[in-house]
Computed example of a mutant assay.
Amino acid sequence: MSSILRTLVARDDNNDVDCESVNAQCALSDSFYGYFPSLAANTVFLVLFIFMWIAHGGQGIYYRSWSTFAAMNLGCLCEVLGYIGRLMMHHNPYNLNGVYLFGQDVSSLKPINYIYIFIFCDLVSLALQGAGGGLASVAAQNNDDMATGDNTQLAGLVFQVASLALFAICCAEYAWRVWRNPAASARVPTVFSQNKNLKAKAL
Results as ranks from 00 to 15, higher is better:
Met1Glu: 09
Met1Val: 10
Ser3Phe: 03
Ile4Cys: 00
Leu5Gln: 05
Val9Pro: 03
Asp12Lys: 14
Asn15Arg: 15
Val17Leu: 02
Ser21Gln: 13
Cys26Thr: 03
Phe32Val: 01
Gly34Gln: 00
Pro37Cys: 10
Ser38Glu: 00
Ser38Trp: 01
Ala40Cys: 05
Ala41Glu: 09
Asn42Phe: 00
Thr43Gly: 04
Phe45Ile: 14
Leu48Tyr: 08
Leu48Arg: 06
Phe49Ser: 04
Phe49Val: 03
Ile50Ser: 05
Phe51Thr: 10
Trp53Glu: 10
Ala55His: 07
Ala55Trp: 10
His56Leu: 10
Gly57Arg: 02
Gly58His: 05
Gly60Pro: 06
Ile61Gly: 06
Ile61Trp: 13
Tyr63Arg: 11
Tyr63Glu: 11
Arg64Thr: 08
Arg64Asn: 08
Ser67Gln: 14
Met72Ser: 15
Asn73His: 07
Gly75Val: 07
Cys78Thr: 14
Val80Gly: 00
Gly82Arg: 04
Ile84Leu: 15
Leu87Pro: 07
Met88Ile: 02
Met89Ser: 10
Met89Thr: 03
Met89Phe: 02
Met89Cys: 03
His90Trp: 12
Pro93Thr: 00
Tyr94Pro: 06
Asn95Thr: 00
Gly98Tyr: 01
Val99Met: 03
Tyr100Val: 09
Leu101His: 07
Phe102Asp: 05
Phe102Glu: 06
Gly103Trp: 01
Gln104Gly: 08
Gln104Ala: 13
Asp105Tyr: 08
Ser108Gln: 09
Lys110Trp: 03
Pro111His: 02
Pro111Val: 00
Ile115Gly: 04
Ile115Lys: 07
Ile115Thr: 08
Tyr116Trp: 11
Phe118Ile: 01
Phe118Ser: 03
Ile119Pro: 04
Phe120Cys: 10
Asp122Ala: 14
Asp122Gln: 12
Asp122Cys: 11
Leu123Ile: 15
Val124Glu: 02
Val124Ser: 01
Leu128Asn: 07
Gly130Ala: 06
Gly132Phe: 05
Gly132Arg: 03
Gly134Leu: 13
Gly134Arg: 04
Val138Tyr: 09
Ala139His: 01
Ala139Val: 00
Ala140Phe: 12
Asn142Arg: 14
Asn142Met: 14
Asn143Tyr: 09
Thr148Glu: 13
Gly149Asp: 06
Asp150His: 11
Asp150Arg: 11
Thr152Ser: 01
Ala155Cys: 06
Gly156Thr: 05
Leu157Gln: 12
Phe159Thr: 08
Ala162Met: 08
Ala162Gln: 04
Leu164Cys: 08
Ala165Phe: 08
Leu166Asn: 04
Phe167Tyr: 13
Ala168Cys: 10
Ile169Gln: 06
Cys170Lys: 11
Cys170Phe: 14
Cys171Val: 13
Glu173Asn: 15
Ala175Asp: 09
Trp176Val: 05
Trp176Asn: 07
Asn181Ser: 12
Pro182Lys: 03
Ala183Arg: 09
Ala186Thr: 04
Ala186Pro: 05
Arg187Val: 05
Arg187Asp: 06
Val188Met: 01
Val188His: 00
Pro189His: 01
Thr190Ser: 14
Ser193Leu: 08
Lys196Thr: 11
Asn197Lys: 12
Leu198Phe: 09
Lys199Leu: 15
Lys201Arg: 14
Ala202Phe: 01
Leu203Ala: 04
